[in-house]
Design a protein around this nucleic acid. Structure first.
Lengths: 208, 208
DNA sequence: CCGCGTAGGCGTACAGCGTACATCTACGAG
DNA sequence: CTCGTAGATGTACGCTGTACGCCTACGCGG
């Protein structure tokens, strides 16, 4: 056949990630990625259908970096390790956080990580709907924590404003906001994960 | 002084929300909101500095709808009730989910809800950093759950694709994906919240 | 009652976005 | 060498957010 392809999905994803890492998510543009690749803008469309597909490509690329080998240890340690690995990889490319939320469902690379998570949960004794709920609860917590951290700094002014609220109208909040700013993200995540893991009991159990 | 203002923040927020509810978040545009208000596009800029401020306005408006009166019952019931109220209000306007994540920090209306949450946690015995972590873990879970539900349906094809994966490479995933589609969002949220609440123990405690 | 200054309302314009379309061109197969 | 195909690209369009400047309606001091 004619002219061979000059770009691979991996090369496109790498260039896209370079743009995001260097200039931030708002700089992600069909034009900037094409320039990063040394091509004309429209050439990119020979490889991706539209911007959404480009975003999905970079998300898949990032998720592919996650080590999905089964961790050792007790099941809670395994789960914590797998969540930590994913979190570390994503935090190395903060600009991809909003993209991850939108496109993780269409990322083939996520399947290995999910399988490893489910393997740990299965070994713990989770079955059927319990296993699904356990998995999704852990993922919701992880995504929420990543997004909170991503959007938090922009509104550091917000937390500061809360600390300055009248202690009369919001006695507890004003007092808590000050303490909140002193907890490092890693510690906050670790302790939050401990809470979720402590609540996960194979075989279920009602609390309400 | 001269000409009085003809628009209130509430009226602007209502019009914006109407656009989002009727035509979806992508339809949210300075032009569409101005048209909804019966004004010229640029007139809107007499009331908001830019699009971001308009988005913050609608988020604050939605959060103001949440009943923040202190719920009755044991502290876990109170927390579940407060999370449920917020979730119900946001789910009534699904298009605002991404906006909520980005702008909740600059929403004055959120303070009353936070104060109510912290009140329940304080009554339970949480103090200092423990209280901060408890609060943030609950919020991260809630936001993650809302976002997952919001972005999930778009990629229903994704879950379907997982169910069709080779049971050889991904034995547990393929089996789990089928069960996953049968759990209603409300049940998933309720059971997930039960997990988190079960893990919340005042006074701390290590698990790892 | 009048005009005057202020701020509301708006029309125009521009840069930047995603991308449809038509064209040119480099290549592998015959 | 030639030809068909698909890669590469230039141009163009509709849409976005918003800067700028003009016009005008209004409440107040005279």
């Amino acid at each position: 056949m004619p002219r061979p392809r000059s770009l691979t999905p991996a090369r496109i994803a790498t260039a896209t990630l370079a743009v995001i890492d260097r200039d931030g998510l708002p700089a992600l543009t069909m034009r900037t990625v094409a320039r990063e690749l040394g091509m004309a803008t429209m050439s990119l469309y020979r490889y991706v259908a539209d911007r959404d597909e480009l975003e999905a490509l970079v998300v898949d690329h990032v998720l592919a970096e996650v080590d999905t080998s089964q961790p050792a240890g007790e099941w809670r340690e395994q789960v914590a390790e797998l969540l930590g690995r994913l979190r570390d990889v994503v935090r190395a490319h903060p600009g991809t956080v909003p993209l991850l939320v939108r496109h993780r469902h269409s990322a083939p690379s996520s399947t290995r990580w999910i399988e490893a998570m489910l393997t740990a949960l299965t070994a713990a004794g989770f079955r059927g709907a319990d296993r699904v709920v356990a998995q999704r609860t852990l993922v919701s917590f992880l995504l929420g924590a990543l997004e909170s951290e991503y959007h938090g700094p922009l509104a550091g002014a917000g937390t500061a404003a809360m600390a300055g609220l009248s202690t009369a109208d919001y006695p507890i909040l004003a007092q808590t906001a000050a303490a909140a700013a002193r907890i490092p993200p890693d510690e906050e995540f670790r302790r939050g994960l401990e809470i979720v893991l402590r609540g996960l009991v194979p075989g279920g159990g009602e609390v309400l």
